[in-house]
Structures are given as C-alpha cells and as structure tokens.
C-alpha cells in the first residue's frame, strides 16, 4: 500500500514540477526544476523496481544533463525566456491534446499497472529471468540482458554516446571561440 502512496505522491510531484517548468520563464529556475524532475523520476524508477534505470537516470538526468544545461546558459548568458508566460499557443495545445488523447485511448486496453498476467510479462521476459543465471552466470538480469542477450543494442548505445562526443567536438570542440568573419557569407538575407 505504501508503494502506491509513494508512487502516486511522487507522480503528482512530477506533474507539478512539469507544469512549473512549462510556466516559468527563468531558465536558471527551469534547469533547477529539471534537476528535481530527474530526481523524482529516478525515484519513481526505484519505486517501480527499475534500479539500474534509476541509477542511470540520476547520474545522467540530474547530473550530466543538468550540468550541461547550466554550462549552456552560462555561455548564452540568457537567463530569461523572452516569450511571455501568459501566452498560450493554441495550435501546439491542440496538437498536444490530440496526441495525449490518442495515448490515453491507447492505454484503455493496456493491462493494469503491475499486472503479472500482462502479455509483456509472459513472453520473452520470463526466459531472461529463468535462464539468466544458468546461461550467463550473472544474477543481475538487467546486466545479463544488456551485455549479453541484447549486447548489440548496448554496442549501439556506446556508439550513440561516441557519436555525441564526436558531434560535440565538431561543434564546439575548438578551445577558443572562433571569430571567422567570412562564415556567414550571403547568409543574412536568405529567403
């Protein structure tokens, strides 16, 4: 029962934080709140038994991402959104409502939260749970699946990170800000 209480409370906090992030215009505050958001969602992962995910989300979302965002606003020196808070953009709102409705519609059929009879729990997953130790000798099933059964995904994942590194180096890897005047040739009045 306490699980559910924690679960629901945290989710509510998440929702409040998210709304606040949408509404607030001070970027610094937004990033702070994003840190909270990450922590909260990581805690949600803990509550929902996804310990590895929680581990990673905390380290990445609340750690690296936040630090990078801070670095960005330090570099851009813009700490406030220019767009007025009160303005509601109707078209995006409509799109979002539509998407949300579609998703809610999609969840109507979905097995209830925690249902052990859900199809997702019945097909591939039990195999991993049963065979992980005999086949790989690794008690942490997530590691077994991650590194062995779906090791290729993880290889891809490492390459994703590597790509990000290459990309960041390409973009802002130069130690000094470039001041090449000719870079914007003819670009000013491009229609």
């Amino acid at each position: 029962m306490i699980d559910i209480v924690i679960d629901i409370t945290l989710l509510t906090f998440l929702a409040i934080t998210a709304v606040a992030i949408v509404r607030i215009t001070n970027l610094f505050a937004i990033i702070m709140l994003f840190g909270i958001f990450s922590f909260l969602s990581a805690t949600m992962f803990v509550v929902m038994d996804a310990v590895d995910v929680a581990f990673t989300e905390a380290a990445v979302g609340a750690g690296i991402s936040t630090v990078l965002m801070l670095a960005t606003i330090a570099l851009t020196k813009d700490q406030n959104e220019k767009q007025s808070v009160g303005r509601i953009s109707w078209l995006p709102l409509a799109v979002v409502t539509l998407t949300g409705t579609a998703l809610v519609y999609g969840t109507l059929d979905i097995p209830a939260f925690g249902d052990p009879e859900a199809p997702a729990q019945k097909h591939v997953a039990p195999y991993y749970i049963e065979r992980s130790v005999p086949e790989t000798g690794v008690p942490n099933i997530v590691t077994a699946v991650l590194a062995s059964y779906r090791g290729f995904d993880t290889l891809g994942e490492v390459f994703v990170i590597f790509t990000a590194g290459i990309a960041v180096l390409l973009l802002i890897g130069d130690k000094r800000r470039k001041s090449t005047p000719g870079r914007n040739e003819g670009g000013e009045n491009d229609a």
Binding site: V53, V60, A125, T154, E157, V160
Partner: peptide, 19 residues
C-alpha cells in the same frame, strides 16, 4: 521479478537522451 527487458531498453534510451 519485474520485467528486465524494458529496463534494458530504457537504459539505452537514457543514453540516447543524454547524447
């Protein structure tokens, strides 16, 4: 046990997200 597969997927997805 909880289903480990989505965990694995999301681990990957988190990495993608940070990238």
């Amino acid at each position: 046990y909880s289903n480990p597969l989505p965990h694995v997927l999301i681990l990957t997805a988190i990495v993608v997200g940070v990238a």
